[in-house]
Design a protein around this nucleic acid. Structure first.
Lengths: 107, 107
DNA sequence: TTTATATGAAACCTTATGGTATTATGTCAA
DNA sequence: TTGACATAATACCATAAGGTTTCATATAAA
């Protein structure tokens, strides 16, 4: 319904390292150092990914002392999911029927 | 369940022109020329996008005389949708409840 | 107040990306 | 068979992406 531009989100999702970071942050907010420890690449590389995630609104960064806490902002991912949801009809009849059933019963 | 690598699909989805091509092909298969007519960029540019879509399995190309019909393969998009579906829990409680209700009643 | 720690920032490199213009090839139609 | 048409292929270009190393800065702890 909000129909906002999915481009920054799809851009953020395009890299496997960024998707892994997103998955990691789904389990809790973390500073850069902790994130970088989980990957082969250097911390500056992770910092660049975090910047792109932040630009896309996928994460927010909160300064806390000398640390900077990176927190997932999962609602933004809905922008991409919404774009893809149009194609539900092509692969999942059951979901369409389910949605229909619910719309008739509840709302 | 299939759990295949979403990388080629997310790559295909990363460009706005490619997403527009996907949307266009959702309404029916078309040859390159027809597709290119709908965009500002040149045909070789569209051809490159189609190549990336084909590499990602998002479209299939069928030679038909001197034309080459580009056909959407929408099931592949499910790979990306599945990856994103993990985050449903963060933004949509209703869907979770719905799923639960269905699992209790049907299967 | 040193010293260690967490991060930012700059400079640089290689390859991918998205685009162009031009030329070649295969197929249909007159 | 010749001409028109649909597309492929090639060469080229500018910028973005993803990575590195090195250096600077701010905060916490000794």
């Amino acid at each position: 319904m909000t129909h906002s531009d999915p481009q920054p989100v799809f851009r953020a999702l395009a890299d496997p390292t960024r998707r892994a970071i997103i998955s990691m942050l789904a389990h809790g907010a973390r500073p850069i150092g902790d994130i970088a420890d989980g990957f082969d690449v250097t911390r500056p590389a992770i910092a660049k990914h975090l910047r792109i995630l932040e630009e896309g609104g996928v994460i927010t960064v909160e300064a806390k002392g000398r640390e900077r806490i990176n927190r997932l902002n999962p609602e933004v991912l809905k922008t991409a999911a919404d774009w893809l949801s149009y194609f539900d009809q092509f692969w999942d009849d059951r979901l369409a029927k389910l949605k229909e059933a619910v719309e008739n019963k509840n709302d």
